[in-house]
Structure formats: structure tokens, C-alpha cells
Design a protein around this nucleic acid. Structure first.
Lengths: 292, 292
DNA sequence: TTTATTAATGAATATATTGCATTAATGGAC
DNA sequence: GTCCATTAATGCAATATATTCATTAATAAA
């Protein structure tokens, strides 16, 4: 059954006149006659009651006219939607990102995506460092924004952005600027630091920082989630080292003291993922980064 | 777009293997390849990601697989239904019938229809005598069962059944049987009779009856609706003449005294109505009548 | 009865589909 | 690395389907 035939039928069912209809759809009356005939044969029923003078729909024809109109427009919609998916303008993509950038570059990225591909569905998740690559491989997420570089086979990676690290202290803390810091004073502080994961370049940097002061910090709590740490610092329970992206969260009662250390942000994806949505998003995100 | 192609696509999307799929659907691998290619061209998108070794669905392909499966089965259902309409096994038909037979032959007819064409939708209506032919012509009803013969052009008619007329009196009335009747006694009664319509053969018969007794009845009320009349007779407000079909209503407190007069029941339809439902129903109804 | 209108049909042509044989790419065996 | 088995793509010929043009046949209206 060719959908073209159904379209011919629908045209004829409007006009109820072979010549006029044939002219309208740019075929000859003869061709139209035969198409309708073969449609009737295929279905095993009569669509029109006709003599040499008049054409009218049979009850079955009337029924099919109604139903086919709906089905055809539904199909058209489906095909359009599929085209959008093909172009990467539609579909769903799941992105894992660290807490730190949810108020800095994430909003920029999301706004750009929403503007360029308004049909796209984005899912944002936060995933523990140790699960990121596994989730990426198992298609639980499509993009992972991390502070850790990786050179896993099958996963591609690009640097997206660089943050300064900052010492986070309560507003009334004795540390006011970088010059106030000394190994001596730092030793007296309680610290909240990221979990020291095997192979995490981010935690390596932070712990490397203490090495430069040549002491082992008194770590009160390890956490991957910056917002937890910030809450504890605000209560005066200790101080922390975080990327200064958190400045964008505009948290009252805290002071960020910039440190001369940088932490990089990477974007990671499956090397063999040909999902056009991903391709588009990547292009967009990497170009957004270029602007910054 | 040929639905056949979509079926090929669906087969391939299950197997993800050209050779096996081609074998399954009884074409060659070459033909299948080309059909998929032209489907992709037509839609302007890629359905499968494939190399010489592997075939897998693209996101757009996955989407279309799901949607098309639904659409195809919907279309199949629609076509089946249309076939039923064509065979007159499905659809709606509206029948007008007099009150009198709603407990006698209507149930028989309806039961027979429901048994033979379980998918059929029947609408029963009661239409005033004066509107019957007009409603039939304007497609408001498809069949009219009447007590009046007609010879209108464009309307066909067949006799369906013959009823006896009966004098309807309260149980305790002095009239017990036909022998009790006399012109003298009848003159003292109040009557409920059908509306005396111009050209209604039914009302002609009834009024003819009185002519045979050579008097003009004292008519208390004219009504076309038997159930109204029966209610009034039961209250002792008068007596009536009705077809004895009403006996089937099993009304307590009333006596039906058979009269030696008959009234015929006719079935009427549009001569040019080719609706297969009507054809089937007519066939069924007329054969049911033959059995009686 | 004649004429104008209009759907159906025969024959020729154009287009699309399919099958057969072959090619080209790729993963696995050794 | 080389060779082999597997498998999707492609050239070409055969077949099937769709379309056109010209004509026919039916019928309502003049």
C-alpha cells in the first residue's frame, strides 16, 4: 500500500470528480482511475460509488477518509520529528557536571543550548567521581563534565575551562588575603577537602598545594559535594579549598581568597557515539568555551 | 512512501542483519538494501548505522521503529474495520418504529441482528407519522417501520407483518368479548384514538371500523403513542382500539378484546441507499418476517 | 435525438523494484 | 601480517508497476 495512493484518494474524496482532482494533483484522469481501482482491490472494498456521471463515497470510503486523514498527518508529524532527531535538534541527552559550576558556566551552556535547539531535552545529573566513566560507558550519561583529565580508551576528552582555586573562610576569619597565609597558621586550621580518589587529578592538585607548604592538613571531613562543604564553613566549623566558580553562587558570610593554583574543567564523551544530538551539543559547548 | 518499505525496515530493525532479514521476508539482500536506502533518501535521514560488518539503529531509526510499529497496526485495524463496513457487518443504522411493536416483533428483530452482526450499532427512534418520510429522505433515519403503506417515489416499502386490532378496556369493564359490542353500547363510551392524519391508512382502518357500526365515536383524546393511551385506559378514563401487539407488553388491569380487523406493518427505506449495512439488515428483517 | 460531460480502458511508455552476480570492506584465525 | 569468511553495497538485466495519450461507453441535459 503506497501512501501516495491514499493521498490520491483523499484528494478525490474532497472533489468527488476525477478530472478536476487529476488536474489538481498533476496526473491524468486515467492514472487516478487506476490508482483508485488498485486501492479498492488491495483493500477488498469499494471506496466510491460511481457511474459515468457521479462520484460519491461509500460508507467504508467515508470511514477511511476520516481515519486516513488523521493517520497521514500523524505520520507526517512523526517523520518531521525523526528528521529533527537526525539533525540533532531533538532527543534527550544526559549530562553529569560538578556542583561547582552549576552557577558559573552551566547556566551559560544551558541557555545557549535552549536557544539553538529549543526541542532538545537535557537531563542534568551529579555523579560521584568514581562512577563517571562507568556511567558514560554504560550509556547512563552522554556527557561528563569533570575536573579530572582522563585517557581511557573509548572516551574522548577536551579541556573546557580553567578555574582558580580559592581558600574559603568565614567572613570574620583572620585570613583576609593570600599574604596572610603561612604554614604556621594553616596548620592550626581544620579543613574540608575533596575525597582523595586514586587517579583524581583535582584532588592531586589540592593535596599538592599542601605539599608546597610542606605539611599535612588536619582534615575534618572529605566530601565531593561543594555545597555540603560550604554549609560547614559558614557554620565556622573549618575552612576549605574550592574552585572559585562557587563565587557565582553568591553566598553571604563567606570570603573567597584566591590561590595561585588552577584547576581545569574537562568535558568527556564516548568516542564512538554518533548520536547527532551529542555531536551538536559538543560543537556548541566547545564553541561557547572558545568565546570565554 | 510505500508501507511495504516500512515493513521491510521493521523486519530489519528486529534482525539487524540484511541477509537473514531478506531471507525472512522473501526478497534478496540486494532488494532490501535498496529499499532501505530509498527509504532513507525519502525521509532525508539515516535509519541504520552500518558498515560491512554491523548494522544498528540510529536514534532516529529507533524512534521511527517505535512509532511506525504503532501506526502500522493502527492502519491494519482501520482497514479491517473498513472491510467490515463494506460487508455491512459494522456501522450504524437508525430505525424508526411504532411504540406498539416494541414488545412484540422488535425484540425478535433486534436479537436476530445482534446475533448475526454483533459489531453493528442500532439506533432506535420514534418519529411522528408526519415526519417519517421526510426523516427518511434526509438521512435522519435509515429504516422506518410504519403501519401505513406508502407509494412515494424514491422510497421502497414491504409488508412485514399483520396485527389484529383489539378493543382495549379496563379488566372490570362490562365488555368481555366481541359479542358484547353493539352500536348502542359503543356510543356510550369515551374513546382514545390515533391522530387522524391525512393519508394515514392505519387511522383510516380504525375510523372505518366505526363506520361499520355506523356512528361517530366520542373521542376524548387523539394520540400517536400507545403507551399514553394505555395509561389512560387503565385509569378508567375511557377505552381504546390498538393493535394487539400491545399484548406482549403484559399490562395488568387491561383486557384486549380481539376485533375482526387487521392492520399491516410496513418497512420503508430509501430506494437508492446502497449502504451495505442497510442491505444486510433488510435481508435479515425480511427473512425473519418470512419465518413468522 | 443529439450533444456535452465524464469515468473506464487499451496500448505504449516511463519509472520502480527485484534478482543475479560481483565487489569491497572488515573482523577473526593462524 | 596474511588469508579467509562474512556481509553490505552495486552494476546490470529482467520484471512489475505507474503514468500518459487516445479512445470508448455511459448518461444527463438540451
Amino acid at each position: 500500500m503506497d501512501l501516495q495512493r491514499i493521498k490520491y484518494f483523499l484528494a478525490l474524496s474532497e472533489q468527488l470528480h476525477y478530472w478536476k482532482t487529476a488536474e489538481k494533483i498533476n496526473i491524468t484522469q486515467s492514472a487516478l482511475t487506476r490508482q483508485i481501482q488498485s486501492l479498492e482491490n488491495e483493500l477488498g472494498l469499494q471506496l466510491f460509488e460511481r457511474n459515468k456521471r457521479n462520484v460519491k463515497l461509500t460508507p467504508a470510503g467515508k470511514f477511511l477518509k476520516e481515519k486516513w486523514e488523521v493517520e497521514l498527518s500523524e505520520l507526517e508529524y512523526i517523520h518531521q520529528f525523526a528528521k529533527q532527531i537526525h539533525l540533532g535538534e531533538s532527543g534527550t541527552i544526559t549530562i553529569a557536571h560538578p556542583d561547582s559550576i552549576s552557577a558559573s558556566i552551566m547556566p551559560d551552556i544551558l541557555a545557549k543550548i535552549a536557544e539553538t535547539f529549543p526541542q532538545l531535552q537535557i537531563k542534568l545529573v551529579q555523579v560521584l567521581y568514581e562512577n563517571q566513566l562507568e556511567f558514560l560507558r554504560n550509556y547512563k550519561i552522554d556527557l561528563a563534565i569533570t575536573r579530572d583529565i582522563n585517557n581511557e580508551p573509548g572516551i574522548k576528552s577536551r579541556k573546557l575551562y580553567s578555574d582558580h582555586l580559592a581558600l574559603v573562610v568565614p567572613q570574620d576569619h583572620s585570613f583576609k588575603e593570600f599574604g596572610d597565609l603561612s604554614a604556621e597558621k594553616l596548620k592550626q586550621q581544620k579543613f574540608f577537602l575533596p575525597t582523595r580518589d586514586e587517579g583524581s587529578s583535582y584532588s592531586d592538585i589540592i593535596h599538592g598545594l599542601f605539599k608546597s607548604y610542606d605539611f599535612v592538613p588536619d582534615v575534618f571531613l572529605h566530601s565531593e559535594f561543594g555545597s555540603t562543604i560550604i554549609a560547614l564553613v559558614k557554620k565556622g566549623l573549618g575552612i576549605a579549598i574550592l574552585p572559585d566558580s562557587y563565587l557565582h553562587h553568591q553566598i553571604p558570610g563567606l570570603r573567597f581568597i584566591p590561590l595561585p593554583f588552577k584547576t581545569d574543567l574537562f568535558i568527556n564523551w564516548r568516542a564512538d557515539d554518533h548520536n547527532p544530538v551529542l555531536v551538536n551539543i559538543l560543537e556548541l559547548v566547545l564553541s561557547t568555551q572558545a568565546i570565554k
